[in-house]
Computed example of a mutant assay.
Amino acid sequence: MEDKSPVYNPYSSSDPSMNVPVTTGPAGAIMSPYLNFDPAYLGTNADSQFIFPEGAARTRGRLELSFSLIGGSVFIGAGLGGLNGFYSGLKDVQARQLTGANRRTQLLNFITKGGASTAQTLGVVALMYSVFGVVLSWGRGVDDELNTVTAGTATGMLYKSSAGWKRCLRGGAVGLGLSTLYVLFTSRDRIRGMMGR
C-alpha cells in the first residue's frame, strides 16, 4: 500500500502571512530585503557620495595602485609570452616535423614556458617600480612626476645591475626614457601649466 498523505511544501503554504509581496506596487520597484525600504526614495545622484575616514584622500594612493599595476603586468606578460611561445613552437614543430599528440604537447610546452617566463619578468619589473614609487612617495611626502621618472630609472638600473655597470646604465636609460614618455603622455596639461603655456 502506498502512503497517500500530502507532502509538506513550505512554498505552497496556505498561511496568508507567507504571501508578502517583494515589490512595492504596480511599478515593481524591488524593496531591500535587509532594511525593508524602497531604495528609490534615496534618489539617484550622478555624483555618488562616499564616507571617507578623516584625513583620507579621495583618490587611491600609489600603494593601492601598485597592486593593479603588478597584477596587470603579470597578465600582460603571460599573454605576450604565450603568443611568442606559440610562434616559436610552430617553427619548432614544423622544423622537427612532429604530428598528432607530440605536436600538440610540444606547442603547449612552448606556450606555457614562454608565458610563465615573460609574466614573471614583467611582474618583477612592476614590483620593483612599485616599491621605488611607494618609498619615494612616502619619503618625499608627495606623489608627482619626479617620483615616476626616478622610480622608472632606478628600476631599470636595478633590473640590469647584475649584468655589469654598462648594462646597468643602459637599463637606467631605458627606464628613464619609458617613464619620461609615460609622464609626458599622462600629465600633458600639468606640464604645460608648469611651463607657463
Rank of each mutant, 00 (worst) to 15 (best):
T148Q: 04
S130I: 03
N36D: 12
G152N: 02
G193Y: 01
L35F: 13
V135N: 01
P33F: 09
L136W: 01
G139W: 02
Q49G: 00
D47F: 14
S117V: 00
F52G: 02
F50I: 03
R167W: 12
Y11V: 04
L42V: 07
Y41M: 11
G175C: 04
L65P: 06
L184Y: 00
S48A: 13
F67M: 00
G61E: 05
N147C: 11
G28M: 06
K91F: 14
G152W: 09
F75R: 08
Q120W: 05
E2L: 14
S48H: 11
L181F: 09
T180D: 10
I70C: 08
G28A: 04
L146C: 08
D92Y: 13
L178W: 04
S187V: 04
M18P: 05
Q49E: 13
T112N: 07
L42K: 09
T112M: 05
M31I: 14
T148S: 07
T23R: 08
L108Y: 08
G141D: 09
K91H: 14
A95D: 12
S73A: 11
I111M: 13
M31L: 15
R104W: 09
G171H: 04
G82W: 02
M157N: 00
L83C: 06
E145F: 12
M31A: 03
I51T: 11
L108H: 01
L90C: 10
S14A: 10
T59H: 14
G141N: 05
Q94K: 12
A151M: 01
S187I: 00
G85C: 05
R197P: 02
G193A: 14
Y8T: 04
L108F: 10
D3E: 07
F37H: 11
L169R: 02
S13I: 06
G71S: 01
N45Y: 10
L176Y: 12
G152Y: 06
F52I: 01
M195R: 12
S66N: 05
V74A: 14
S187W: 07
G71N: 05
T59N: 13
G172K: 03
G81Q: 06
T24E: 14
D92L: 13
R60P: 11
P21N: 12
A27T: 15
S5Y: 06
N147P: 02
G85F: 04
V134L: 08
N19Q: 12
D144L: 01
I30M: 11
D3H: 09
